[in-house]
Design a protein around this nucleic acid. Structure first.
Lengths: 336, 336
DNA sequence: TATATTGAAGCAAACGTTTGATGACAGGAG
DNA sequence: CTCCTGTCATCAAACGTTTGCTTCAATATA
């Protein structure tokens, strides 16, 4: 049976509030009773019921995390960063997987609030939920969800710069007929990456052919299918910027099957720098995101907002941008 | 401000218990008040406080999941299966990452119980925590943690059979001087895989050289390092059974760098069948685990035990074994 | 008409904590 | 000897629900 504060009090013939104060190191109990309480609490195997505590303190030391996918190692690493950082401050994490589904995301946003989380971190997959997030009763940190007049803070890799790095690198290598493979969302992330990419082309007074902006899913199959489709329709394409590494892996799969050599016959650059990208068999050129840092910084920001949540008026949404980094490997190379 | 059941009651000038009954479709309220309550509850944006509800119902509709690593896609897929299945029954998931650390695992086991989870799923990384799990106040399902006299149920791929499939396949291909690369744990999983593997050798009256049972971590680097070490010390090794695909990827990385052709010069077989294993550049022969099913079945088993948790006496720990499947790809082939 | 039956509403306890208010008692100052 | 101060303990309310019990009026039954 679960032992409560009252069980301890009864056993010691004292009032249960003394037990509470003793256990929480609050003043108002003599050293002797305190020692005694602590001792018997341990003996009886007492574990505070944090949900009862939460009822009165109105905090649960829990944050909700809503992400679209946990199999993609990008989110795996970000989530690891989130959980590790949260744990340092004794917070636990409700993990929810929206599976890129807008309705499911909406349900989760409501559900975690019902569970009285102290705050949430959301990688939103659609704009329709923006107002739901803005009207949340707890602080919200968005991952890659900055829009012009955001009501909540957001952390992201600098996607414009990341896109630019990708574009610039392709140009430097001599590629001129590039394509972009984007994920499904019309989120800021993919727009910014595209924008940065095109900026790089403009800067050199080069033209990016908009018909080569291809939208698919964020998975291997999609990369494979888009590559097939694109290269059949536009065989002159000389390079592809995949919006994430998983898509790029799909591209590489198609190229391998067709005997097209990435880096030689066609340039491929990804985004994220998941671990697989560095394998010698893959050697994917990519733009690195500081994945663990993203998680860590989001949590720190969130905990800070939780702390100051009472004085609403002094809350200004922040936008934090982390630096991307170009990682050059074998799937791109100087064209002669 | 958060709106409570009492706010609604006050607005409607009725008692708050009627509101509760109305909202929960319990008898004892007239249809008219029920309609009225439901309507104003919606208008006022009422969201039940599930933790207060949990205090009285003594359940939280939450399960704790403790796994060692979320970046490995194996656990990513299992976790996805867990979360999706749990959600179907309106359960949420506390996700904890032990990072293969025994102490951290212990802390988590205690922490999730304090948070009053209704049950937990644990992939334990060390035997020391067995008693902690057995004395848990809530049902526990182990992932790959069956021992002779288990007190809690456990779900696992049939690792003996999986090991056997791997061994048999290597033998069928003509490999005779095999090595095993194991993860760190002395858990049942790795022991069973080894045992099955050796059974296959015994069955053919072949000898497995025990000095080639190598213990490392479950990551790419470890696979790389073990491969380097093994092949320098035992250059006659003709095949390696990696206890998971990530280790195998590390092996392939080493082989690639050395110009050794997997499947031709040396056989490599993994375990899990993560998605990367099927990439044409990788083509890793492996033993497939039904990852999503593992998650699903663990949750169903757990929810069942939660339902019947009251009558302790009729609780018999079950052991559920799922079928592994050999997936033959390019890193093994018939030797002449 | 008197009594039993029903249905709807209200009351209050309980879940396990935290915490402000109150009380008892001792020791020190005047 | 009285008054004040401070320490430690108890009391009780509160957090937001659920739920058993009671009350009350209206209706049905005899």
């Amino acid at each position: 049976m679960k032992v409560t504060i009252k069980d301890i009090a009864q056993k010691l013939n004292i009032n249960f509030s003394s037990v509470s104060r003793a256990l929480n190191n609050k003043p108002g109990v003599s050293d002797e009773t305190r020692r005694l309480v602590v001792k018997t609490a341990k003996e009886m195997g007492y574990r505070p019921n944090v949900i009862a505590r939460g009822l009165v303190s109105r905090t649960t030391k829990t944050i909700g995390v809503i992400i679209p996918d946990i199999i993609n190692p990008l989110f795996g690493e970000i989530t690891t960063g989130i959980i590790e950082t949260a744990n340092l401050s004794d917070y636990d994490v409700f993990l929810c997987i929206s599976n890129w589904d807008c309705d499911k995301e909406k349900d989760y946003i409501n559900a975690v609030q019902q569970k009285q989380v102290d705050g949430m971190i959301v990688k939103s997959v659609c704009n329709e939920n923006a107002s739901l997030l803005e009207s949340a009763v707890v602080p919200v940190i968005g991952l890659e969800s900055w829009t012009a007049n955001n009501k909540f803070s957001s952390v992201s890799t600098d996607n414009i710069k990341g896109g630019y790095l990708a574009g610039k690198h392709l140009i430097d290598c001599g590629y001129r007929k590039a394509a972009i493979f984007s994920g499904p969302e019309n989120s800021s992330a993919s727009q910014f990456r595209r924008q940065g990419f095109i900026n790089a082309f403009r800067e050199q007074e080069l033209h990016f052919d908009d018909t080569k902006f291809c939208v698919g899913e964020y998975d291997i199959e999609s990369g494979y299918n888009l590559a097939k489709q694109l290269l059949e329709e536009h065989p002159d394409t000389d390079s592809i910027f995949a919006n994430n590494d998983v898509i790029a892996l799909g591209i590489l799969q198609y190229l391998e099957e067709k005997g097209i050599k990435p880096g030689k016959d066609i340039g491929v650059i990804g985004f994220d720098n998941i671990r697989m990208a560095g394998l010698p068999q893959i050697q994917l050129t990519t733009v690195k995101q500081p994945k663990h840092s993203l998680g860590r910084i989001m949590v720190n920001l969130l905990l800070d907002e939780i702390k100051n949540h009472s004085d609403k008026n002094q809350h200004y949404p922040q936008r934090i941008l982390l630096e991307p980094e170009l990682i050059v490997r074998g799937t791109t190379s100087k064209q002669s």
